[in-house]
């Protein structure tokens, strides 16, 4: 098991190095920072001096290493646009995105698992089939369209919920939260649904498929033959086995929620890192873009790693040897 973890950590580091290379390449090949930083009135000597200052005269490998060193310390330089340290800007924006991702993640997870179980157990029922059909539509509609539809119905027509922004936020230390005010909570609802809906349908379909598969297993049949109640068969015997494979996918989905937040944040003008990234692209604000990229990949890799550890926690077979596992 230890060997496995070490191998996974090693893989994660490798992935991060590659992403780091991409982020670094953006600095080198997308526009010349020296051009951006010096005004029109520049001499060749100015340029040379700045290049030396920024270390741009060093070989590629040295520059890359330095970039990684700085990145590891959370130092991505100054935003071209705002002139402030990128890390500071990101940290400021992060709570908005994390709160949104957290709420939609919970929605996707619990909604998806509940609906998945329901549609599996009642697979011949009318309501289960209606849910399945609606979910198909849900998967095929693009996120921004769902967002706009929700805004149209609940903000424009009914006027129940705000169509943009985070509402009133409370500052607790370095963190800003929308959880403590009514307007903050209200503002969360539509973006959270928009962001979580797609993942929820995916999780639902996954849980349903797995559950149906598990319900056909011999041990379920044997449990039935022993007169175990349906409730226990569904929620004790079947659900636990269903969740093993579901966890991986779900974990990855939660990771992608943060990445997908870009679209939702744009539609709802949600002041998170996604919106920051979109704005950064418009202004070719390379340090912000690079930092965002690194941050997202660290999250992805981190979540992946945690998911793998969870696997061990839930499946006793894996604690002994991995090869006997699977499902």
């Amino acid at each position: 098991m230890l060997a496995y973890i070490i191998r996974r950590v090693f893989q994660s580091v490798l992935v991060l190095l590659v992403v780091g290379l991409v982020a670094f390449a953006m600095f080198r090949f997308v526009g010349d920072p020296v051009d951006n930083m010096l005004g029109q009135e520049r001499t060749q000597a100015d340029i040379e001096r700045l290049r030396e200052q920024l270390g741009l005269d060093q070989p590629f490998i040295v520059q890359y290493w330095r970039f990684l060193e700085q990145a590891a310390q959370g130092n991505f330089g100054l935003s071209y646009r705002q002139g402030r340290p990128v890390a500071e800007i990101l940290i400021e924006r992060l709570p908005a995105t994390l709160e949104l991702a957290f709420v939609s993640g919970l929605l996707a997870l619990f909604g998806g698992i509940a609906l998945g179980i329901f549609t599996a157990i009642r697979r011949r029922g009318v309501s289960a089939n209606v849910i399945m059909t609606v979910s198909l539509i849900g998967v095929s509609l693009p996120t921004f369209l769902i967002g706009i539809l929700l805004i149209y119905v609940f903000s424009v027509e009914l006027g129940w919920l705000p169509s943009f922004g985070r509402g009133e936020v409370t500052r607790i230390g370095g963190w800003t939260t929308g959880f403590l005010t009514e307007s903050g909570l209200k503002a969360l609802i539509l973006p959270a649904i928009t962001l979580g809906l797609y993942q929820m349908t995916l999780i639902m379909r996954l849980v349903r498929t797995e559950m149906l598969e598990v319900l056909r297993m011999d041990y379920i049949r044997f449990a039935r033959a022993r007169g175990i109640r349906e409730k226990s068969i569904n929620f004790r015997h079947a659900l636990k086995n269903t969740l093993v494979p579901v966890i991986t996918i779900t974990g990855l989905q939660l990771g992608s929620i943060i990445a997908f937040a870009i679209i939702t944040e744009t539609v709802f003008q949600w002041p998170g890192v996604g919106l920051l990234f979109i704005n950064a692209i418009q202004f070719v604000d390379i340090p912000v873009m690079a930092a965002y990229l690194m941050m997202i990949s660290v999250m992805f890799v981190g979540i992946n790693l945690i998911v793998d550890m969870l696997y061990f926690a839930i499946d006793p077979r894996l604690r002994v040897d991995r090869t006997a596992g699977g499902h």
């Binding site: 041990y219 044997f222 033959a225 022993r226 007169g227 015997h237 086995n241 499946d315 077979r317």
Partner: peptide, 30 residues
């Protein structure tokens, strides 16, 4: 009646037991 009056044993002991529940759990539940 199942379990109490009539029991069943299947062919494959590898797949007849729930892998995620201890043997004791499965016995005591029944």
């Amino acid at each position: 009646l199942r379990g109490k009056k009539m029991g069943m044993i299947f062919q494959d002991p590898l797949t007849s037991l729930n892998p995620l529940l201890t043997v004791g759990d499965q016995l005591t539940e029944t």
